[in-house]
Computed example of a mutant assay.
Amino acid sequence: MRRFYLFGFLLLMAFDTLAQLSFKLAGSHALPVTADAAWLARVFAQPWVYGAVAGYIGAFFTWMTLLRHAPIGPAFAASHLEVVSVMLLSAWLLHEPLTLPRVLGAATIVAGILCLAAAERETLVVAPGPAG
């Protein structure tokens, strides 16, 4: 089951990251916004729009599968790891600044997820089994 969680959350993070980066790139290539047919044609001509859609669909189905098995608290927290992956890939691929507050925020997210995972593991060890 541990492998299932690890693979599932890595897949979720990959889909979420694909969606966010694709959405950013699609938006950048759609400028200037004119809200007319020509603009819509320009938006849907970009492959990034389809990357965003594929990422959102993949994330949805991965998330629904994980929710059937994972405890909701740690699962919800771990589902936000894409904030860290998007930040790192944006710095690398899009040359966005990687500032100290961003790094500290990412470290806080990871620390929070680790704390929730440790608390969940402790709960599973300490909690009494079913009566009977």
Results as ranks from 00 to 15, higher is better:
Tyr50Val: 05
Gly112Asn: 07
Ser90Arg: 08
Gly8Ala: 08
Gly129Ala: 14
Val83Gln: 02
Val49Arg: 09
Gly105Glu: 06
Thr99Cys: 03
Ser90Thr: 03
Asp16Met: 09
Phe4Lys: 03
Lys24Gly: 07
Ala131Pro: 09
Gly51Trp: 03
Ile109Ala: 01
Leu89Pro: 00
Ile72Gly: 03
Val125Glu: 13
Ala127Glu: 13
Val84Phe: 00
Leu40Val: 09
Asp36Gly: 05
Met87Ala: 14
Gly27Asp: 07
Val86Ile: 11
Pro128Cys: 09
Phe7Met: 11
Val49Met: 12
Gly55Asn: 08
Gln46Phe: 03
Arg2His: 09
Leu31Ile: 06
Gln46Asp: 14
Leu6Cys: 08
Leu100Gln: 11
Gln20Ile: 00
Phe23Met: 14
Met13Pro: 00
Thr65Pro: 00
Trp48Met: 08
Phe15Asp: 00
His80Arg: 10
Thr17Phe: 01
Val126Gln: 14
Ala111Lys: 08
Leu6Ala: 15
Leu124Asp: 13
Ala41Arg: 11
Ala127Trp: 07
Ala119Ser: 06
His80Gln: 14
Val33Ala: 13
Leu6Phe: 12
Ile109Lys: 00
Gly73Asn: 06
Val43Pro: 10
Pro101Val: 08
Thr17Cys: 02
Phe4Pro: 07
His95Ile: 05
Arg3Cys: 07
Ala127Met: 11
Pro47Leu: 10
Ala78Gly: 11
Gly129Cys: 08
Ala131Met: 13
Val110Ala: 01
Ala111Gln: 09
Ala70Thr: 06
Asp16Ala: 13
Ala30His: 04
Val84Lys: 01
Ala59Glu: 06
Ser85Leu: 04
Val86Pro: 05
Leu124Ser: 12
His29Met: 06
Phe60Glu: 11
Cys115Leu: 15
Ala91Val: 04
Ala41Thr: 13
Leu100Ala: 15
Ala111Leu: 12
Phe23His: 10
Thr108Leu: 15
Phe61Glu: 02
Val110Thr: 03
